[in-house]
Simulated scan of single mutants.
Amino acid sequence: MRLPEPMGPLLLSLTAIPVSYVVNSMSTMSDPISIAGIGILVLLGLLVLLVIFMQGDPPSDPLFYVFAIFSFTSVIDLIIWLEEDGYISGFMEFYMKEGEPYLRTSHGILICLWDGTVHYLLYLIMLAAIAQGKNYKAVGQFWLGSLIMSMLVFLPGNVVGKYGTEIRPAFFLNAPYLMLPFWAGMRIFREKHSLAKTPAEKVEMAHREGILQRPLDIALILFLLAAIVFTVFRGMLALDCPSDSCFTYIYQYEPYLRDPVAYPKVQMLVSMFYLLPFQCLAIYGLLTPGCSWMLDWTLIYAGAIAQAQFAHIGSSLYHRTPYTYRVPHDSWWVFMISNVLYALGPQLLAYRCLRNPKYFLQRTSQSAEDGKKQD
């Protein structure tokens, strides 16, 4: 018996709705250890069902099982957001009380919303691509950046923030989100981008273009320079910079950085130590022809920034954030414009690299032969 493609994984992920309702109705779901145990059993049961359904015609890509299970947990996260914001009730109350109470913070709710919408859509796209034998490398790399960024902030933030004393066994259910993306990333990186073959002559012409002949790249370099300054500045804020400019900014524009939940500080430090080096390398890639790694890493960068800025902007405005840590009304526009531009720039950079990749391609003997055939 085989699940119909691509509707099978979609229908399987929606079983999260009755499963969460039934589990929530069980009176035994008040012990933290029981909650962690039932979570493991549900995920293992889902994996067994997938293997049984796919036994007759297993997928060619083992990541099918990863994305199918993660799509199930994405629906769980969407249920958490709907319940915590009062749209539904009776589904995940047990888990929020004794499983992962830090998910009730603004940051926790918003990463659930992101996972239940954006990640869920990406999983369905990748599952459909696997079922149809299509390339999904670009989507996979965007997802990879987004998920890794989410985990790099969420897990340390839980431990070092004010909820560090409320870590329960269910915390370790996040382990697959930390380990599986690295395995998935290695498989995704081995795939080739679905780019049309470019004749060597066009690659050479693109390589001969100076930066003054590429106004879009000039604009992207200026953005990256501004992003570097902004990243370093907010990293210094997270490290409690004592200067007057830091004091003024953190109180008048981004008071959320002072929130004791620690997620915003961890976010700024992760950005400074991991994203800042790439921002510098990206400028080099825009100035130096043949940097083919730009096609991969700009997508990961775009996914990471998109997730990070969604959580940061949202948490800075969300009603669950204490009023004193929300963006002041007088500085709302300055905050929004600077942070939205910081999020949109990487998306434009990734789009530029994939839309017109000639400048980043390396000339090989194969590309030269392709060019001769087309003459």
Rank of each mutant, 00 (worst) to 15 (best):
L239R: 06
I228S: 11
L178Q: 05
R234S: 07
L224A: 03
D244S: 14
L180N: 04
G235I: 01
R190L: 05
T231K: 02
A196Q: 14
R214T: 01
V203S: 06
D244C: 11
R234Q: 07
F223D: 01
D240V: 05
I188R: 05
M236W: 02
K202I: 10
S194C: 11
L178S: 02
E204N: 13
F230C: 02
A184R: 03
H207R: 06
A184D: 07
L224S: 03
A184V: 13
M179P: 05
Y177Q: 06
H207K: 12
A184C: 11
P176I: 08
A226P: 01
V203I: 15
A206D: 13
A238I: 07
A196G: 11
C246Y: 09
F247A: 12
L222N: 00
H193F: 14
E191P: 03
L224F: 04
L239S: 09
Q213V: 01
L195V: 06
F189E: 08
I211F: 07
P215S: 00
L220M: 05
L195I: 12
V229T: 12
F182Q: 03
P242D: 08
V229Q: 10
G210C: 06
P181W: 03
S243C: 12
V232F: 10
L225S: 02
F247D: 13
D240W: 14
L222H: 00
A184K: 01
R190W: 02
S194D: 15
S245L: 14
T231S: 11
F233H: 05
S243V: 12
R234A: 04
R187Q: 14
T198L: 13
W183V: 14
M186Q: 09
V203A: 10
V229I: 14
M205C: 13
A200P: 11
M205I: 15
L225T: 01
A206N: 10
E191I: 01
M179C: 14
L237M: 09
